[in-house]
């Protein structure tokens, strides 16, 4: 099966040809070994190499346990890889930094802060003056559709609202790269679709680089310029698929577009295959 370019390194070509693409993140032969017990080791990631261009929306797709989160954490600087290296703008990643903004599946909001307090936290930490940080944060809260909820505590919000706050909180300190780990995984289908649309709108406005982990094929195709398909045990990159669909993307148009449908069907087939590679070690 070779319907789409796959399993090669030559994919490192521009996905946004209209502007000169430069690599913002380079992952070079990264492997991650976890010590699962005193004598057992688990190879979670094996020799992952990936280059992400500035302004690209890249999704990582793969079966549960293939190391998607681990890869994201390595780029975030939260986890040090066992071997290999990750770089941002040519600089080795040694720890977390405000140039990379994570949005975790668990939301990880600060429960003792209100919605506004959560969103203002980053800018305040960056030394933005209180009044200015507040004005920016209020605008962001409005942008993610939570106007009127500024003074609510996280416990008073639904899952979808928390996810919006988490996104706004990360956007608030203007990271150059957004690292999103199954941000919509825990949401109902309707909320999920709405947030996907909102995310696309926000992204199409300021074209941040996004590294987006998901295990939904539709979501990956709908959002991305490039889909990276992983397989598990050990976690490897199986395919890299460029999604050549026009932007701005409208969900109702896209769902009827045969090209979109073909991407989804082909990638779903690859997904099934890559799932079969995995055998418990």
């Amino acid at each position: 099966m070779k319907v789409l370019p796959s399993r090669s390194n030559e994919w490192v070509r521009s996905v946004t040809p209209q502007k000169p693409a430069s690599a913002i993140i380079e992952i070079d032969r990264v492997s991650q070994v976890f010590q699962t017990s005193a004598r057992k080791e688990h190879l979670a990631l094996s020799e992952i190499s990936l280059t992400i261009e500035e302004g690209a929306f890249v999704s990582i797709l793969g079966p549960s346990g293939c190391g998607k989160s681990t890869l994201l954490y390595i780029v975030g600087g939260f986890v040090n890889p066992t071997s290999g290296a990750a770089k941002i703008k040519g600089q080795a990643i040694t720890g977390p930094g405000p140039d990379r903004g994570p949005v975790f599946q668990e939301f990880a909001l600060f429960p003792w802060k209100t919605v506004l307090g959560n969103v203002m936290y980053g800018p305040r930490q960056q030394g933005v003056r209180a009044a200015e940080a507040e004005a920016q944060s209020r605008a962001l809260i409005e942008m993610v559709g939570l106007k009127g909820y500024e003074n609510f505590y996280p416990k008073e919000l639904s899952g979808g609202m928390k996810q919006r706050v988490a996104l706004a909180r990360t956007l608030a300190y203007h990271p150059e790269v957004l690292l999103m780990d199954e941000p919509f995984g825990a949401l109902d289908a309707h909320t999920r679709t709405r947030l996907q649309n909102d995310l696309l709108n926000i992204w199409e406005r300021d074209r941040k680089t996004v590294l987006f982990v998901t295990h939904s094929v539709d979501e990956a195709v709908f959002l991305s310029d490039k889909v990276v398909m992983m397989s598990k045990s050990p976690g490897r990159i199986r395919h890299v698929i460029d999604i050549d669909l026009p932007r701005p993307r409208r969900r109702n148009e896209l769902l009827l577009d045969p090209r979109y449908q073909k991407y989804v069907v082909d990638i779903e087939r690859m997904f099934d295959e890559s799932d079969e590679f995995g055998s418990p070690s």
Partner: peptide, 29 residues
């Protein structure tokens, strides 16, 4: 204290001591 909360703080630029005082302390309050 949820590790992701500390990671979120680290990404915003909080030092380990700041994380202890400004995240661990209120979260554990």
């Amino acid at each position: 204290v949820e590790e992701k909360m500390l990671w979120s703080g680290a990404a915003m630029g909080l030092s380990p001591l700041q994380r202890l005082v400004r995240i661990v302390l209120p979260a554990a309050l």
